[in-house]
């Protein structure tokens, strides 16, 4: 039976009727159209579906939508406002941290959550924070460099 829930996605409240077995990833993508959330595995292995729920990065493919009723959710679409990119996004573009882009939404959200908590992370801290996000294209180095650079940009 469907249940009516409220999700506050990128600061906007959405009321949705969802089946209890539907994941947050499915509801974000299919019901609400936040297609920037990617699904690379559906079982919590890859991190492509990472979104921020109440300040914490989560694999949205592992969370049922009904579990996060009332939560504040940030998807990749909510990271920047208007035409201006968030420093993490800007650094990802500038430093070559993006190739195919399928891991990018999740990477950026994991990186952003890290920087929101820790404005000056060391390389091991960055790597630890991104260790749940797989990337097959980049070898991670330019992603790590981009996060460093973003930290610098955010301090200014």
């Amino acid at each position: 039976m469907k249940k009516l829930i409220t999700l506050i996605v990128n600061k906007r409240a959405f009321e949705v009727a969802v089946e209890p077995n539907r994941t947050l990833a499915q509801v974000l993508r299919e019901d609400l159209g936040f297609l920037g959330t990617k699904v690379g595995c559906g079982i919590g292995d890859c991190g492509a579906c990472t979104v921020v729920v109440d300040g914490r990065p989560v694999n949205s493919c592992l969370v049922l939508a009904v579990q996060v009723n009332g939560s504040e959710i940030t998807t990749i679409e909510g990271v920047s406002e208007g035409a201006e990119l968030h420093p993490v996004q800007e650094a990802f573009v500038e430093y070559g941290a993006i190739q195919c882009g399928f891991c990018t939404s999740g990477m950026i959200l994991s990186a952003k959550t890290l920087l929101d908590r820790n404005s000056n992370p060391s390389e091991p801290e960055i790597r630890a924070a991104l260790s749940g996000n797989l990337c097959r294209c980049t070898g991670y180095q330019k992603i790590v460099e981009a996060v460093h650079a973003a930290a610098g940009m955010m301090k200014k």
Partner: peptide
């Protein structure tokens, strides 16, 4: 040079569309 990718912005903002999208 090191010009940024043409599709970097779309991918960084979640606007890039893949087949399943």
């Amino acid at each position: 040079t090191r010009v940024p990718r043409v599709d970097g912005r779309a991918k960084a903002t979640g606007k890039a569309r893949y087949a399943d999208d």
